[in-house]
């Protein structure tokens, strides 16, 4: 698998700095699960963060700080926590790896074959994914083979991560692992490649980001 479309520097930096809202973060983290190249870029950025921490102007700790810390670590001799295994849907018992990597699989509650798709009309389906950030709208989209993505407007940034099948946006092909980053200036009509439905994760600015009262008025009708 060769990924051609990666996370931009500014988006990856926001991830490394911890300033990315949950919805965007979900898309970037899922791309990172599939992309060793971007994980390498991420570690460089985290190294830069560590170096800046070395150079920060220190803020003196309280006089009793270390004594208190010593007491605290000795009191509760820390139970070594095993790496996160519990409380997540198990990978399906089959040879092939799941289509949806973590952290996405936990967010939708299982892998592709267990999903309950909701029709968007014209053969397209979606599954809204709940996040708590209040500023993004996240969903899994299934676009029928050879068909265009349903009309959608995005007031701001849009991230689309392909998980299975592929789509063309103009001349450009996006396949598994590829991340398309579009902003408000981009007008596009992605079309799923014939032969296979395209499943992708789409993150956009949430409805409440729209400023125009007119847009707010018609939003319930458009279902965006």
């Amino acid at each position: 698998m060769t990924i051609r479309h990666h996370v931009s520097d500014e988006l990856l930096l926001a991830y490394a700095a911890g300033t990315l809202e949950e919805g965007w973060r979900l898309a970037v983290a899922t791309h990172l699960a599939l992309c060793p190249d971007c994980r390498k870029r991420l570690s460089l950025m985290e190294d830069a963060g560590g170096q800046l921490l070395e150079e920060i102007v220190p803020e003196p700790a309280m006089a009793t700080s270390f004594e208190r810390l010593r007491q605290r670590v000795l009191e509760k001799s820390a139970p070594v926590r095993p790496a996160s295994a519990a409380a997540r849907p198990a990978a399906p018992a089959r040879a092939a790896a799941p289509v949806l990597p973590e952290p996405l699989r936990s967010y939708v509650g299982g892998d592709v074959e267990t999903l309950k798709w909701k029709s968007l009309g014209r053969g397209a389906y979606h599954i809204p994914i709940r996040t708590d950030d209040g500023t993004t709208m996240v969903r899994l989209l299934r676009i029928p083979a050879g068909k265009p993505v349903p009309e959608h407007g995005h007031g701001g940034r849009e991230l689309t991560l392909v998980l299975s099948g592929s789509f063309h946006d103009g001349e450009t092909l996006f396949a598994r692992g590829d991340l398309e980053e579009a902003d408000a200036s981009v007008q596009h009509q992605p079309v799923a490649t014939p032969g296979e439905d395209c499943i992708c994760l789409a993150v956009t600015d949430a409805p409440l980001k729209f400023r125009s009262w007119l847009v707010r008025l018609v939003q319930p009708v458009l279902g965006i």
């Binding site: 979900l26 983290a29 990172l32 990597p101 973590e102 952290p103 699989r105 967010y107």
Partner: peptide
């Protein structure tokens, strides 16, 4: 949300 190196899809 974060990626998980122990995930079979990783």
């Amino acid at each position: 949300p974060d990626f998980d190196p122990n995930d079979p899809a990783f």
